[in-house]
Computed example of a mutant assay.
Amino acid sequence: MDKLPFDIDVALERIEDAVRPWPKAALFQLFEEGYTSTFEQLLACIISIRTYDEVTLPVSRKLFARARTPSELSRLSWEELDALISPSTFHERKANQILSIAMQVAERFGESLPGDRDVLLSFAGVGPKCANLVLGVACGTPVISVDIHVHRVTGRWGYIKASTPEKTLLALEAKLPEQHWIDINRLLVPFGKHICTGTKPRCSTCPVLDMCQQVGVVEHR
């Protein structure tokens, strides 16, 4: 079928409706639950690395029920912290990272971690994707966080063409209107999990099928 020109405003509006029944991406859900500080969002992001949201959410809640501030976290033993986050992938390494970050923040900034990208990237284990996600969610800073879903979906649409998530970020920064920079991650994570899936995407129920170029789609549902 002939495709309409891709209209990102229309696409994201339709996707907003389509993903409403599905769970929100972990950091956005935690923000809604009141875990809004830059520090809390950073810890949740570290926990989420290589870990499903279905695990990240209860693990983060359990951790924050025990300690939510840099000083509270830094007083935990490594053994206690590791036990709290043990369902997440690479929990031993993450326990080391979280303890180190908590101590550094408490020493340098007291109880309030500033929403500064260079500060976030100065911590071991925090990369651009995590830093951007934290800044977007916790601080409302207009930045784009590109995970595998954002990378796959925007490429499949034909909206951009990029071989890696890092190149997708640069392409989106050049093309995507700034008002969508935070929402692109918020919307495309559940969209990519439940509709525009990695294998056999659900094209028959996709709200943007009339605009999507279906790049690389061999089989679909």
Rank of each mutant, 00 (worst) to 15 (best):
Ser60His: 01
Leu121Phe: 15
Gln179Lys: 12
Arg66Lys: 15
His151Asp: 08
Phe6Thr: 03
Ala44Val: 06
Arg50His: 12
Ile49Ser: 13
Arg221Met: 08
Thr199Ile: 12
Pro58Thr: 06
His194Pro: 14
Cys45Arg: 07
Lys3Asp: 10
Thr89Glu: 02
Leu73Ser: 14
Lys62Ala: 15
Gly125Asp: 13
Asp7Tyr: 12
Asp17Ile: 06
Leu27Trp: 13
Ile195Gly: 04
Lys161Ile: 04
Gln104Pro: 04
Met103His: 11
Pro128His: 15
His151Ser: 09
Ala102Arg: 11
Ser112His: 13
Asp53Tyr: 07
Thr154Lys: 13
Leu169Ala: 10
Cys206Thr: 00
Pro70Glu: 15
Ile184Trp: 08
Ile47Thr: 02
Val19Met: 08
Val137Asn: 01
Lys62Tyr: 04
Ala162Cys: 06
Ile184Arg: 12
Ala83Gln: 13
Ser100Thr: 12
Phe90Asp: 05
Ala95Cys: 02
Arg93Gln: 15
Ser71Lys: 08
Glu173Trp: 15
Glu166Cys: 10
Leu27Pro: 00
Ile195Glu: 01
Trp78Leu: 11
Gln213Ser: 07
Leu99Gln: 12
Arg20Pro: 02
Pro201Ala: 11
Arg93Val: 12
Leu188Asp: 00
Gly136Asp: 03
Arg68Glu: 14
Ile49Glu: 09
Glu54Leu: 04
Arg117Ala: 02
His91Gly: 06
Met211Gln: 14
Trp78Pro: 01
Thr141Asp: 09
Leu30Asn: 09
Lys175Gly: 05
Ile160Thr: 08
Pro23Met: 05
Thr69Ala: 05
Ala11Asp: 09
Glu178Ile: 08
Leu84Val: 03
Glu32Phe: 00
Leu42Thr: 05
Trp22Gly: 10
Ala162Asp: 00
Phe64Met: 04
Ala138Glu: 01
Arg20Val: 14
Phe31Trp: 12
Gly216Tyr: 13
Ile47Asn: 03
Phe109Leu: 10
Ala171Asn: 08
Pro142Cys: 09
Cys196Asn: 02
Ile182Gln: 07
Val153Arg: 09
Gln214Asp: 00
Gln179Met: 12
Val215Gly: 05
Val208Tyr: 10
Arg20Asp: 05
Ile98His: 04
Gln29Tyr: 03
Phe191Gly: 01
Thr168Tyr: 11
His220Trp: 14
Leu42Glu: 06
Phe191Gln: 00
Thr38Val: 14
Ala131Arg: 04
Val126Arg: 02
Leu84Ala: 01
Leu76Asn: 05
Gln97Tyr: 12
Ile160Lys: 15
Ile148Phe: 02
Asp118Lys: 15
His180Pro: 13
Ala44Ser: 10
Gln104Val: 09
Arg156Cys: 05
Glu32Gln: 15
His194Ile: 08
Phe64Leu: 06
Val215Pro: 14
Leu57Ser: 09
His194Asn: 13
Asp82Arg: 14
Ile101Pro: 10
Val137Arg: 11
Ala102Thr: 14
Glu173Ser: 07
Phe39Asn: 03
Gly155Met: 05
Met1Glu: 00
Arg156Glu: 03
Gly136Phe: 04
Phe123Thr: 04
Phe191Glu: 00
Phe28His: 12
Lys62Thr: 05
Phe31Leu: 12
Lys200His: 06
Gln104Leu: 14
Val146Pro: 05
Pro5Glu: 02
His194Gln: 07
